[in-house]
Design a protein around this nucleic acid. Structure first.
Lengths: 156, 156
DNA sequence: TCTGAAAGTCACGAAGG
DNA sequence: CCTTCGTGACTTTCAGA
């Protein structure tokens, strides 16, 4: 009974509706979810479990204000390998640094872009030194001044 | 060593513990939260409500697999104003585009960095046209090839 | 894959120290 | 700011269509 109109492995309308609601409110109750998508609570429950198993739902997180936890400074750091022939294991070399929130492998001038959160300019300086040492890369840093919006739920 | 968050408006250890757990598991029950931080369920409940009111907790979201919802292509787009004297209202001009997940005002060569998610290269091309038209900016795009890790919970 | 019901667990507010 | 307590709501499982 699977629909193949939208491509292999595609999700049908009800599953997308569930993902949309959970992306908007990650703590939405099953009861409320059921009302919104027009199914029984049990059916929604089964679908959510299936979406989790399938990897369509990759977890739930609270958005925390960086300023209030003492990490007011966000920056993007572009990495360029010093030795172009070195093995490409940068993510593994960097994942132990908790200040690095995200790591993207990219096409373009640089090889990776990191998104980081630190307490201060001094903390950023220290982090940059650790990154260069751990990964043998040169870095280019872009400091975030403000964040008009962030991690908005995608249009599902 | 000096504590990170000792200034006015700082959060104490229990509140930080709550934020840490909710950042790790946004659907964590109050009961489990209470066990982890060593308080009664009601006390945790009160603290969470206070953290929400205070803005330290800015919401809860499910992480959704971009590929499975038909948005497999992520990119960063740097914006440079065409007219340097134009009013700086770019976020307002761009927020109606749902493909734009995040918008950062930055120091450096560019004025803004956008993080976007689209269905295909054609979708990216179309989005770039809309961004240029809406904001009167020139753009520089960096396509994400893979994401070793993303939105890891900060070290609270 | 759905529904409805049963049983256990949890959320949430009240009252009080 | 904490605790305990009570009630209503919610989660979770299961049998059956």
């Amino acid at each position: 009974m699977s629909e193949r109109n939208t491509g292999p492995g595609a999700l049908e309308a009800t599953d997308r509706a569930i993902l949309r609601e959970l992306a908007r409110d990650g703590r939405c109750s099953f009861t409320e979810l059921a009302e919104r998508v027009g199914l029984s609570v049990s059916a929604v429950h089964q679908r959510v479990r299936r979406l989790e198993q399938r990897g369509a739902l990759q977890g739930y997180t609270a958005k925390v204000d960086g300023e209030q936890i003492g990490l007011p400074l966000t920056a993007f750091i572009s990495l360029t390998p010093i030795d172009p022939a070195a093995p490409d294991d940068y993510p593994q070399r960097l994942q132990h640094l908790p200040e690095i929130e995200s790591c993207y492998s990219v096409a373009g001038d640089e090889s990776y872009i990191l998104q980081v959160r630190v307490a201060s300019p001094l903390g950023l300086e220290d982090l940059l030194r650790q990154i260069r040492e751990a990964a043998k890369v040169s870095t280019r840093t872009t400091v975030v001044l403000s964040t008009p919006f962030e991690n908005r739920p995608p249009a599902i």
